[in-house]
Amino acid sequence: MRDETIRDDLKASPRFQLEHQRRDFLGMAAMWSAASAIFVALLGAMRLPIPSVFPESNSRVKLGSVDLFQGVAVTPFVEQRLWVFSDDQGLYAISAICTHLGCLVARQEDGEFDCPCHGSRFDSQGKVTKGPAPKPLLRLALSVSPDGQLVVDRQQTVGPEVRLKV
């Protein structure tokens, strides 16, 4: 008890405060610098797990001559995980990757899409009709390369009304 009173007295004296303030300033500065250095280092390290570019296959893939996609038809591209549809208004591509949890949907005889993993179902236009999928199957952007090849960009999605006119 007595010690504490003395200490309080001491602390109260301006000279003590001044001395301690100076010492504190240095200490505080040192501590804060160390903390911020470590923080910045961690911040930098946080960037490490995500590379600037992912080691992945090209998102843009040529699917073959545009002439092949005429009339009303459905062409599956198993490796690219998509279907190319053509109708009177033009071409569009539907991704086979379920928007729920990334399984591959299967196209049924009636034109609808079934997901094997959690029972999502999509109609022939990719709209969700059943199950947990939060959004319709993705429509992928189609374009025609200068050499007349149909090109799909698997990273770029478009709206359901978009058609590629040939």
Partner: peptide, 27 residues
């Protein structure tokens, strides 16, 4: 290129998988 059907998680996650089949985020 070939999904498992059904694709079942290990047993201790199957309860969650059931929930996930209602909503991915919530489950």
């Amino acid at each position: 290129l070939v999904p498992e059907n059904p694709a079942k998680a290990p047993w201790y996650f199957l309860g969650l998988q059931e929930l996930v089949s209602y909503s991915a985020f919530m489950g």
